[in-house]
Simulated scan of single mutants.
Amino acid sequence: MNTKTLVSICSPVYNGEDHIEDCIKGVLTQTYENFEYIIVDNASTDNTPSIIEKYRKKDSRIRVYRNEKTVCMDDNFNICAGYCSDNSKWIKYALADDYLFPDCVEKMVKVGEMDEQIGIVSAYRIAGRYVTSMGLPIEQNVFNGAEILKQQILLKLHVADGSPNTVMYKKSVFFEFNGFNSKYNQSDVELVFKLLDKYKFGFVHYVLTKSGRDKKGGFYYLVKHGFHILEYLDFGYKNLSNYKSISFDKDEMDYLKMYYARAIVSFLITKCAYFEWEDIKRMLGNIPEDIKKEVKKTFVRDFPKHIIKYFVSLLRRIKSYLRDKKRFEQFT
């Protein structure tokens, strides 16, 4: 009998034929052996089902389910978690277009088992060309969740909100908060904030996962259209009273107002330059009144600087284009 804690590894996937095979291989090469592997195909229309079936036949730990129709991403994440065995203790997502390094689960479970009050475990990750989730003291693995939460809300730390692929959730805690809330595009961040408000935080000082940074991917879509700012404003500013373990003094609130005002002004000026009125209208319609006042002052103060910066950038792009055009003409 395997006495190690059972971990449920979950891969929700939709049309993932380009990446799902590498994802599965990453899971099956884990050094931690006591896991079950749950894959939920969200009614894919490409070659994903046949790739999954090839590996299911080879490994009895793989359980495959297929939705009758395509549901939203967050719902599929929750459906996947719903298939976890009753006696598993942790949920580890392995997203179809990301990757788990071989010692990922083993090292995360080791830290997670250090304290029964740990509700979530994170680690360094590779995101595109960068290593992220930096900033915690390297000699410490267990942290007060409230302290991490406050630094995350103040946007001074980003150690638990990179991706569901980066963290491991205690299953009982995950279901206590009903998993991912499909109200948010960044539902993983909103869930992390709620978990940190009540439970301790575990961190592994190793790079254990890799996430892509596709410029056509979800994160870039959120940033491009302002949803990244708007959602943080909602669960990281408007609803601060929902967090019972932390409080903010006047200086900290002023800092947050100024941070969001500057981010919003930068966004609005960029959108004005490209005449993207829908994004502008959405942003202006959802800014809290106290931040809106700061936005007006910041806009007046920073507008000339941003315009100069924009035109300098435009001139550089034109210069680069003309240089490349000239080189091309020399060889034709």
Rank of each mutant, 00 (worst) to 15 (best):
K297D: 15
P102F: 09
S50R: 14
F203A: 02
S122D: 13
Y32N: 07
M108K: 05
Y260A: 05
L284P: 12
L284I: 10
I246Q: 09
F275G: 05
S266M: 06
R317L: 14
S11T: 15
L149P: 00
K325Q: 08
C72Y: 05
I264F: 03
L155V: 05
V295S: 01
Y232L: 11
F180D: 08
M114K: 14
F328K: 11
S88A: 09
K325S: 09
D249V: 10
S85W: 07
D18S: 15
D290L: 10
G212M: 15
L157G: 11
K107R: 06
Y184G: 01
M114W: 08
V131M: 10
N181A: 02
F203W: 01
I153G: 03
D115T: 02
L100G: 01
N2Y: 12
W277T: 12
N47W: 01
I229K: 05
C72W: 02
N239R: 14
V207R: 03
N239D: 08
Y55I: 06
R262M: 07
K216A: 12
C84E: 09
D249T: 08
E252T: 10
I148S: 01
V109R: 00
K200A: 04
G226Q: 04
Y199M: 05
T332P: 00
Y14Q: 13
V204C: 04
K257P: 04
M168P: 04
E106V: 09
M134Q: 11
I9H: 01
D18P: 08
L157R: 11
L233A: 05
K292T: 08
K89R: 13
F331G: 03
Q30K: 03
Y220C: 14
I118K: 00
F303S: 12
F175L: 10
F219I: 10
I38T: 00
E113N: 07
G217S: 09
Q186S: 07
L95K: 03
I229A: 03
Y184P: 04
V312E: 09
K194L: 14
S313N: 15
I246L: 08
S163V: 09
G226M: 06
G212S: 15
V300L: 14
S8H: 07
E147G: 06
F219E: 07
R316V: 06
Y206I: 01
L136P: 07
K216T: 15
Y243N: 05
K326D: 12
K238G: 06
K110V: 01
D279L: 06
D214Y: 13
N34K: 08
I153P: 00
K194M: 08
I138S: 13
K69I: 14
E33S: 14
F175A: 07
V192N: 09
S266A: 11
Y274I: 14
K250T: 13
N67W: 02
D249L: 07
I229N: 02
S60T: 06
K198D: 07
N144M: 09
N42A: 07
I62W: 02
I308F: 14
D234E: 10
R56S: 06
L240D: 07
K216H: 15
I91D: 04
L314V: 11
E53G: 05
F299K: 06
R63K: 13
S172M: 08
N34C: 08
Q140C: 09
